[in-house]
Computed example of a mutant assay.
Amino acid sequence: MTYAFPPGGLPDQSVNPEGTAVFTEAYAVLPAVTQRDIVTSYLPGWTGMRMWVLARPLSGFAETFSQYAVELAPGGGSDKPEVDPEAQSVIFVVGGTLTLNIDGARHALAPGGYAYVPPDTVWTLWNDGESPAKFHWIRKRYVEAEGVDTPEAFVTSDQDVAPTEMPDCNGVWATTRFVDPTDLRHDMHVNIVTFQPGGRIPFAETHVMEHGLYVLEGTADYLLNKDWVPVGPGDFMWLRAFCPQACITTGDGRFRYLLYKDVNRHMPL
């Protein structure tokens, strides 16, 4: 499998600067072409890393999560990646290899590798390979619930989890769920949604969950609020609660994206 990642670099002087990035009260689109070297950031406590910040909590917009695309040079990493003890993380590897250590247990992650790290966990992350490692890092502050245990750490991969076909869709729409939706320990889901050629979301979804959608593969026309937006590999969509959304695949290949949503908790009042 192949997975998109920010291209970095910088367009040459012949490129028309009129772009397709959009920021509205309901949604934002950060096309891959905007994810360049001049918008990277670095984190204290890390070696040989840079990252693109794709989403962060904004009052009145999407308030529950942050999402980074991180590139680690060979030998790069951190012995204390997370500084917030209340934050939980999902790591999804798209290039190179990573060595993840969770509470003393060592895990080797290759492209497609997926890891969930609970809050208040001791973990480290290093690139022991000879080429850059690239991964998505999604973070959310965990919301405890009375009588519900904190979820355990786990490591799996895109290749090891069978997609679940959505009902009444003839197999053209499926979701790779890394967490059981009925497991109330989890207050966020990070899934992979796959559409075969010709597939679509056949209605405008409108719901309370905030979304981050990073296109891993393929192309589609995506409905965001009232606008149809063409998207492709490396494009990122950021949706606030209740923003209507749907999609229709385009081209001859499948369309896949990494999807974040917040779930399974009372609404704060």
Results as ranks from 00 to 15, higher is better:
residue 182 T to L: 12
residue 104 G to Y: 15
residue 115 A to Y: 06
residue 189 H to A: 08
residue 104 G to I: 12
residue 187 D to L: 01
residue 230 P to D: 07
residue 125 L to T: 02
residue 194 T to C: 02
residue 109 L to W: 11
residue 110 A to R: 13
residue 165 E to H: 06
residue 207 H to M: 01
residue 174 A to V: 05
residue 121 T to K: 09
residue 115 A to H: 10
residue 133 A to K: 11
residue 217 E to Q: 06
residue 107 H to A: 12
residue 207 H to Q: 01
residue 178 F to L: 02
residue 113 G to W: 08
residue 122 V to C: 09
residue 188 M to Y: 07
residue 119 P to H: 09
residue 221 D to K: 01
residue 185 R to E: 14
residue 125 L to W: 07
residue 120 D to G: 08
residue 184 L to V: 14
residue 196 Q to Y: 02
residue 135 F to H: 02
residue 224 L to C: 15
residue 228 W to I: 14
residue 133 A to P: 14
residue 110 A to S: 15
residue 108 A to N: 15
residue 212 G to P: 00
residue 180 D to A: 02
residue 220 A to Y: 04
residue 127 N to F: 12
residue 230 P to Y: 09
residue 166 M to L: 13
residue 219 T to D: 11
residue 210 E to L: 02
residue 159 Q to M: 06
residue 176 T to W: 02
residue 139 R to M: 12
residue 148 V to T: 05
residue 104 G to N: 15
residue 215 V to Q: 01
residue 148 V to C: 00
residue 169 C to S: 11
residue 212 G to F: 01
residue 204 A to C: 10
residue 167 P to Q: 05
residue 191 N to C: 01
residue 132 P to I: 08
residue 173 W to R: 12
residue 165 E to N: 08
residue 107 H to E: 13
residue 205 E to W: 07
residue 132 P to S: 11
residue 169 C to V: 10
residue 143 V to D: 03
residue 178 F to A: 01
residue 140 K to T: 09
residue 162 A to T: 02
residue 173 W to H: 09
residue 197 P to W: 04
residue 171 G to E: 11
residue 208 V to W: 14
